[in-house]
Design a protein around this nucleic acid. Structure first.
Lengths: 145, 145
DNA sequence: TATTGTTATACTCTATAACTATA
DNA sequence: TATAGTTATAGAGTATAACAATA
């Protein structure tokens, strides 16, 4: 096979990711917690309470969008807003015990299909996939403003 | 490092993909052609004219959603609807020369950031990423109805 | 009856703009 | 002035429901 150009390979990667995202969505049915919401909960669980602005930067969305995401999580009782101890403008977003429990059910119905599909890959493919995960994460965090 | 469970690794992969998708979107600014639209054009370019129903199945969306996507591409002059030769119900979606030209500009402004980021990875990381692309594509095509 | 496609409507995620409160 | 957050509004992408035309 002729080696793809970097441009072609990148375009193919973007397409493949889009296909997988839609495939997972199609398999998901009604979702209690969205990808964005889960990502925020995972982040708070890993790094501790954070402000809306911090979360927005980390997740590459605008603060207004993160406000919506956090409000939805708050509505479900998965996070709480606490006033910042010294800066009256900021709100610290904390994970509630209910949110931590929700997060523990790491793979919810939405991701059951993907888990099953990955579990049927051979060990080598799984290894490649999870090695790529680390690279994808590094790319996503590149130049995060 | 302790080996992650498959559940944890899958959840981390989902999060990483979500982060990258948002990161690319944030870098993109105004986009002429969306991920979904590009994916459809790539598919027609690779496999030839297809019906709305075929495209919907392949892209894991509902026919109504694919109708919207195709209508947008048609509006931009990138695809054309042709009546099916024998089945009066079906419409064959074909790529126009304008669409093919658009597709050749494989990496548009939206993906320039990603191309640049990937170009700065070392060769080994690039290889892992593109090996994963093939696996991701296989996953996405699994059980496609 | 089953399939293809269209139209109408709604929901999720994110964006921009305009505002208030605090630093 | 600059930053953190909120409220209002809009757009893209997808979904469900109801329908018409054809097989």
């Amino acid at each position: 096979m002729v080696k793809k150009s970097l441009e072609t390979a990148t375009a193919d990667l973007v397409q493949a990711i889009g296909l997988l995202v839609r495939r997972v969505r199609a398999a998901g049915g009604v979702q209690e917690v969205s990808w964005s919401q889960t990502s925020v909960m995972k982040r708070i669980a890993a790094s501790g309470p954070a402000t809306i602005a911090d979360l927005a930067r980390a997740e590459s969305v605008k603060p207004q969008s993160m406000g919506t995401t956090v409000a939805a999580l708050e509505e479900m009782g998965f996070v709480e807003r606490k006033p910042h101890p010294t800066d009256g403008r900021q709100m610290m977003i904390e994970l509630t015990p209910k949110g931590a429990a929700e997060l523990k059910r790491t793979v919810d119905a939405k991701r059951a299909w993907l888990l099953h599909a990955i579990s049927q890959l051979d060990a080598s493919d799984q290894q490649t996939l999870f090695a790529a995960e680390e690279i994808i994460r590094r790319l996503a965090e590149r130049d995060a403003v």
